[in-house]
Nucleic acid binder design. Structure first.
Lengths: 346, 346
DNA sequence: TTGAAAGCGCTACCAT
DNA sequence: ATGGTAGCGCTTTCAA
């Protein structure tokens, strides 16, 4: 009995057939009592663990799921991963993490891992499917899309209401008395960036506020673009008194640049972010931002995927999880509520 | 030919045996030219992908490795993951991420996944092995320990020189002219925290500086403990002019608390962290800290693991990767270089 | 309640 | 250079 014990070893020791051992260990309730206990004890004594490859081959399942993200270096995904992992392990699944780096080749590759026995299902957080000619993605693969939207794909979605969240963030600024509110967008025309921008526009419109020329700056979610856009904003004839950034990372870039230029946050300019990253609350001053329940999103996505995998029904409408505006230290009323009333131009 | 194509399907279509197909696709160079191309073309046409469970069962390998961390929610590990993942995929491996949450049960469980076909090897970042009575960890499992130290375990290690790094951080403060330098430790007696503390002590000693009573505060790497320790420091009869924190997260807690108490960083007090987290450079002011080449650590650990898995030799001395002190905005000379000379007491 | 045996899809050995 | 085939370890019919 060299090497790891196998089912046959237990069977031989106990004096039953491998089939009985398999049934006993699977807890099918089909094995009678004297035998059952002896099998269990022997298995424990040998420290037996079923070989997963053999089991997977036989059952045609891997008990693994694939979490595919755009950039595994972004801490944003970590919390999601945690939620996914927790729900997965409760159900006996392990989690493979895939990192596309926006590379279409990788996207296709990960998608293919669904079919080749690597994983039974997939949680997609990249916002896009591999090019249709590369795969036969029919829309009924066991895939759940989280946070992003893959329009018309037929997959279940777990999302936040980006439009409403952005709107509430901008409304907060408006309620503080701001009128010259700028927005730094994410990469357009990605739907997520689009929605947040539309939320900004809607809030402005509902408040009867004009969006001055140059007040919409186009960023790409990275720190450096926050810096650049901030510079562009500071070069404008009329300066904004508040800036709504499409994510926290850009907000940090903005705040850094404002400080460097001697502009105080929030005294001179208010800044709002989006994401509530790890340590955003620890920033100086603590960042006002839209908080996403990331672990919860992960957990929900995994739960839906598990239903899907067990053949149960899945929601055909996107599941919307609530966001929360965290008002912290980077927002305040504008310095001089009245001196900003220079009228509006388009 | 319903379902996914298998090797036999290709064999039938091309009119060769499954063995030949397997050899052709494996690129063994044992298949002659007219056949080779036809097999490849047919495989491509069918979009054939080998079933991994079958292959794994047959080859007794999973082509997966396990990256086990203490807390998957800590962005610190992300960069490491990226390095591991990159090196892994180059070699055709996938990466399973395991999250122990310091739970011994999970630690044992992940360790067991090494034997049951889940993974071929493991990169351990938890700093401890499962209790020895739970596992037959003999020290020659394919395990590489990264960043932490598992003394006397016999596994290859990839580490940083915590002592030297801490020493250089404190030296930087000393060179700026600081004498009253406090230290907030990690959780003791963990080796990593210990080493950093010893580095601090060595630097002080070499400079002939006394460590005043209360200048060593015991933290636990979490933000909140930075806040608490900072309060304790501020209650001391003689205030430190500089604080060396055993990680960035506590440094953020410290800076936040200093700000709240009206103490300016770095004008009144200098702060140095350790880790160089995502966004530490974007902090206001940008954090002076010890930068660890995380992706590189991950990559190196994976490279060693790959050697180990291919039967090659592995370093029997810990591989030490270089850290770098990033001098940024939270350190400056002490406010009044001379008024601090009140003599020393033990 | 238990056993016998087929077979998941692949690779690698032994032939030819 | 290619084919035949055993067998990796498990689960699951079918029979008893």
């Amino acid at each position: 009995m060299a090497g790891r014990p196998k089912i046959k070893d237990i069977a031989d020791m106990v004096g039953v057939s491998p089939a009985t051992v398999s049934r006993a260990l699977a807890g099918t309730g089909l094995v009678a009592e004297p035998t059952l206990s002896r099998i269990r004890e022997t298995a424990a004594a040998l420290d037996y663990r079923p070989n997963v490859s053999a089991r997977n081959l036989r059952t045609q399942r891997s008990m693994a799921i694939l979490l595919v993200v755009r950039d595994a270096g972004n801490p944003f995904y970590l919390e999601v991963f945690k939620g996914v992992e927790a729900a997965a392990r409760e159900a006996g699944y392990s989690v493979l993490m895939g990192n596309t780096e926006d590379d279409p080749v990788r996207e296709t590759e990960y998608f293919a891992m669904l079919g080749d026995g690597h994983a039974d299902g997939m949680i997609l957080m990249t916002g896009k499917l591999p090019a249709p000619n590369d795969t036969r993605a029919t829309g009924d693969e066991p895939v759940v899309v989280a946070l992003e939207m893959v329009e018309g794909s037929g997959y279940p979605h777990v999302v936040i209401d980006n439009h409403a969240a952005a709107l509430s963030a901008v409304n907060h600024l408006i309620e503080l008395g701001h009128q010259n509110i700028a927005h730094i967008t994410g990469p357009l025309p990605e739907p997520m960036s689009q929605r947040r921008m539309e939320g900004y526009r809607t809030a402005m419109k509902l408040a009867g506020l004009a969006i001055r020329e140059g007040f919409e700056q186009r960023g790409d979610y990275l720190l450096e673009s926050g810096v650049q856009c901030c510079r562009a904003l500071l070069a404008l004839p009329v300066l904004p008194t508040a800036i709504f950034c499409a994510n926290d990372e850009m907000a940090f870039g903005v705040i850094g640049e404002l400080n460097r230029q001697g502009v105080s946050v929030p005294d001179d300019v208010s800044v709002v972010g989006f994401d509530d990253l790890f340590l955003s609350a620890a920033f100086q001053p603590p960042l006002t931002t839209v908080s996403q329940p990331r672990a919860d999103i992960g957990r929900q996505a995994m739960t839906i995927l598990l239903s899907r995998l067990s053949g149960a029904a899945v929601p055909d409408e996107p599941v919307v999880v609530a966001t929360q505006l965290k008002v912290r230290g980077t927002t305040a009323p504008p310095k001089s509520l009245t001196t900003q009333h220079q009228g509006r131009h388009q």
